[in-house]
Design a protein around this nucleic acid. Structure first.
Lengths: 330, 330
DNA sequence: GTGAAAGCGCTAACAG
DNA sequence: CTGTTAGCGCTTTCAC
């Protein structure tokens, strides 16, 4: 692999001349620049980014850590990140935070291979996050409730969204409403539950314990939760699944048993993943602005990188999307 | 940020001692190692990975480039990659290859910030790939047909899968079969088309030109293709959508017009994305072994990294998955 | 057992 | 306009 030194020799100039010539600095005159460019060509020279990063003490790279790359709405999040990052001349890279903390997390965050990161993963330990965050490594957390210096937060209004969609069910006349929750570590799951209970209380409806089921945000767990519900009668009048994937699992369980949604039972989800438009019936859910979440988080990251130390947490609005599954006339 | 030098001073030893002590080299005696560890603690020292990469001339990092991070089966691919990479002590990072070649591609591949990469993106130019590939940067291409040194290939048997699923439709008695293709640049799309025409010819059935529609692998384009088909009568007896997302678009168009699948028209897709089990009706499709694709590609990458220069292209088997949409009794 | 020194490839003053 | 020099933080012979 040819280095800048090789280019310099070949072109008969010094290393520094090559360095500045390559960034079109007007200090080197056109003729030498040409010679240098030729040398670059003939040697197939490619600058070594690592050496550059070391010298510059920054990488122009930021990471996005996702617990599970397959999440159905992550791509939107990432495109929000990407759009903002690119406009700042940064490259976002995505890494999966599972697989043993010993890996990407370690390499990229602990060993400073990126300038900053956005993290969406309920499982990464709080201590770890607070430890690695620092002036040279701001961290923007999504859906986490961790305070710390150089740790910033962005989230959607899970509680409000859950409140509103529950109100929708209540207004449709349902009272016996089951809730299928997410894993207990997930702050967003908790907030959704809080929104749910808030609306129930607001309407003066008591919660029934047997209707509160814990899932883990997977389609399978939604399916299992539906089985549980089916094993005990009577069925509730409506189900609020903590996210759309679980709602889809519920739908599958019901279709196997020929239980009609929404005629026999109403169903709502959360997230508004693309799929929800294509299920039968289409799913009433709560829309999370994933793209915007990405852009906002990234903007915060750059503000932090620019030296702003304290940035207030941001909460983005959610919106109830009414479709057929909740039994609305529309 | 504390450096190894700070640690050395604090512990009253030399830099090199710290360096070797930190990798538990038995040459340094336990007592000094303890002193060093304390210094590390109190200074909050974290090794600088970039300096290390520069010195070592390798990063222990590999990239996976995806055209669109949101692809519904990429997560499986990536987990295949991850499992193998981790077992080799490598960290995979995922980057989106769009957003102007000027970005992640440039940073990571051209400027040598990774040791190798796996690429699944029909749009990255052939010349670029051949240029950046080299002994220090082997590239494994998925679903591409590019030859070059240090360029390796893995693909699924698109043609065979398409042939088989078309045979399935033909055996179900359908003759008027429409095909909705992918973008012309995509080799996998072409191979699927070839499998389709192969089966038709094998059965002695003529292709009807108006039934050959070009899509771009998105749900929307499937929807649009269905509209096109609907605008001209008679309808075909069956549709082979080049991938599942387009098949889902077709389904949506049909459900809007109350056209029943499979009673009025049979439908099959390709890929076997998770969603296909949950559509109504469930979709007959061709399963691609995405996880395996990831593991195999990564294994090849490591063989290349280990010095093997020529590795034959690998073609993984696909499998027809029969569900309700093709009108099978099952 | 530990330290001194060289160097990975690049950039950025500072001279000339 | 171009070259010399120092140094980013780390690893690794090679001496002692």
């Amino acid at each position: 692999m040819a280095t800048i030194k090789d280019v310099a020799e070949r072109a008969g100039v010094s290393v520094s001349t090559v360095s500045i010539a390559l960034k079109r600095d007007p200090r080197v005159k056109e003729s030498t620049r040409q010679r240098i460019l030729e040398a670059v060509q003939s040697l197939g020279y490619r600058p070594n980014g690592i050496a550059r990063d070391l010298k510059m003490q920054q990488t122009q790279t930021m990471a996005v850590f996702l617990h599970d790359l397959g999440g159905p709405f992550y791509s939107e999040l990432v495109s929000g990140v990407q759009d903002v990052a690119l406009s700042h001349g940064y490259s976002p890279i995505v890494a999966c935070s599972v697989g043993g903390k010993g890996v990407a997390l370690e390499r990229l965050l602990v060993e400073n291979r990126v300038d900053g990161a956005i993290i969406l993963d309920p499982y990464i330990e709080e201590d770890f996050i607070r430890q690695v965050a620092g002036p040279t490594l701001p961290l923007v957390l999504l859906d986490r409730d961790i305070e710390g210096s150089y740790v910033y937060r962005v989230t959607s209004d899970h509680e409000g969204g859950a409140f509103n969609v529950t109100m929708h069910l209540l207004e449709m006349g349902h009272r016996q409403i089951a809730f299928i929750g997410g894993p207990s570590v997930s702050v967003d799951g908790q907030l959704r539950f809080r929104g749910f209970t808030g609306a129930m209380k607001h309407f003066g409806v008591d919660l029934e314990k047997r209707f509160m089921i814990l899932g883990d945000f997977t389609e399978q767990s939604g399916y299992a939760a539906a089985q549980t519900l089916l094993s005990q009668s009577p069925l509730p009048e409506a189900i609020f699944a903590g996210n759309d994937e679980m709602a889809i699992g519920v739908l599958r369980a019901f279709s196997e048993r020929s239980i009609r949604v929404p005629e026999d039972i109403a169903l709502v989800g959360f997230d508004d993943i693309r799929l929800t438009q294509h299920t039968t019936p289409a799913l009433t859910t709560v829309h999370q602005p994933m793209y915007e979440l990405g852009t906002v988080a990234t903007q915060i990251l750059f503000r932090a990188l620019a030296g702003e130390e304290t940035i207030a947490p941001v909460i983005l609005e959610t919106r109830v999307v009414i479709r057929a599954s909740s039994g609305s006339r529309q």
